[in-house]
Design a protein around this nucleic acid. Sequence first.
DNA 1: GCCAACGTTGGC
DNA 2: GCCAACGTTGGC
Length: 158
Amino acid sequence: MGENYWLLKSEPGCYSIDDLAAEPDQTTCWSGVRNFQARNFMRDGMAVGDKAVFYHSVTDPSAVGVMGIVRAAYADPTAQDPQDSHFDPRATPEKPLWYAVDVRFERKFRSPVPLRAMRVVPALAGMELLRKGSRLSVMPINAQEFATLCRMGEEGAE
DNA sequence: GCCAACGTTGGC
DNA sequence: GCCAACGTTGGC
């Protein structure tokens, strides 16, 4: 456990790393994932102790910090809440269909790592994120990619 | 705001 | 099972 690395996307206008850092316990339920491949990564791959890079999409796309996975996959409560925009009538307590994990803020990078900066780093060339048309909101990265992103985030802008 | 890429839906 | 239509994502 705690051996895997991930990249999690969120639009900062929806939920940003500052929002996470501002939570009372700096922890939140990472819910609302509605893509089967992303769901499978969360449900089948994530374990307590794993690390995840927080990525801001759409607005100033960039990696902005690090989170830890503090609770493994469980039924996404938003899927079964009719009031929620992520409600899915197919989801039931017996067959949740969608899953969430809990994440805890660990640190914010000294400077965000822009997507365009990632594109020119050979060590990052294999990341799913850099593939044209990639829309996955939850994806695995390897230890080297994680370390490279962290180093770039602490070094400051290139 | 534009548009390419993608996942999902639904008719057949 | 195919595939066109549609809605969404997300970079630019």
